[in-house]
């Protein structure tokens, strides 16, 4: 087993009690370490010599059945040791900013550690112009967030407004945006998305949609507001996606997958990616 060069930073077995573990008969030859992500596993400092082999018989245990390496264990957010899975979210998922990759350590369904990167390192600040297309992208962002929040009717409305904006039906879109915002305000979304993913850091908040700090719900309203303003041609803002991506791990750590997906969708990264594509062409 050659662990040289792998990233061992994520998991620490020091202090774990291996006295119960019997490795006799386990087949390590099946473990394929090439190309696997070992960020989860750290054997440094573990002392396997002199372990007590009488306690537990794992002779029937295969350390890598079907070539999938063993799930590790690590403390979850309550301090209990739990199974840990290394899961990569992105770069392509429904309702997910294209090109964003989030490497997560999942305890059950809670993200205990995360590392985020944009596939393209050049993903950084630029000015978002106003205009119909920018407004349509805002509607896209809002539709994704609404779909993740399970508000399928409202998500369908947001997608319809996007269509109206791209067709150039601005008056109808403006009216529709007002109506959608009223319906969102009245809905249970205030209960399900409020108090979630609260951003208080003003330095980070200025890169959010309409520089809106607060909860996921606040940012959803900001998206609809920004769509209206962009449609008016009254806005244009400077946001830096790389700054948001750098702070992403801190925002999603300790949340379960559902909440983390909502927080990611609320940052409005998708529209930034689309803008960037447009600029490079």
């Amino acid at each position: 087993m050659d662990h040289t060069g792998t990233d061992h930073s994520q998991m620490d077995h020091t202090g774990t009690d291996h006295s119960q573990m019997d490795h006799t008969g386990t087949d390590h030859s099946q473990m394929d370490h090439t190309g696997t992500d070992h960020s989860q596993m750290d054997h440094t400092g573990t002392d396997h010599s002199g372990t007590d082999h009488s306690g537990m018989d794992h002779s029937g245990m295969d350390m890598a059945p079907a070539g999938i390496p063993l799930a590790g264990g690590a403390a979850d957010r309550d301090g209990l040791e739990m199974d840990t899975l290394a899961v990569q979210l992105g770069p392509v998922l429904p309702y997910w900013p294209p090109g964003l990759v989030l490497h997560c350590a999942l305890n059950g369904d809670v993200i205990t550690r995360a590392r985020a990167r944009g596939l393209d390192d050049a993903w950084h600040g630029f000015v978002e112009p106003g205009g119909r297309e920018a407004a349509a992208r805002r509607c896209d962002d809002a539709a994704a967030l609404l779909a993740l929040a399970g508000a399928s009717g409202l998500a369908a409305d947001a997608r319809r407004l996007r269509g109206a904006l791209l067709r150039g039906d601005t008056a109808a879109a403006q009216h529709g945006l007002d109506r959608l915002e009223r319906r969102v305000r009245r809905s249970l979304l205030r209960w399900s998305l409020g108090r979630l993913g609260v951003v208080e850091d003003p330095a980070l908040a200025q890169h959010l949609v309409a520089a809106q700090a607060g909860s996921v719900f606040d940012r959803l309203l900001a998206m609809l507001g920004a769509a209206r303003d962009a449609n008016d041609g009254s806005s244009g803002e400077r946001r830096d996606a790389s700054r948001l991506i750098a702070d992403l791990p801190q925002l999603v750590t300790g949340l379960d997958l559902a909440a983390a997906r909502l927080v990611v969708a609320s940052l409005g990264l998708s529209s930034l990616a689309a803008e960037r594509g447009g600029h490079h062409e």
Partner: peptide, 20 residues
């Protein structure tokens, strides 16, 4: 059993007999 097994191989196939 799966989440909180001591050494957490519980997502994997394993023997159910200890200390025969």
């Amino acid at each position: 059993m799966i989440m909180f097994m001591g050494m957490n191989p519980a997502l994997m196939p394993m023997s159910m007999v200890h200390d025969k």
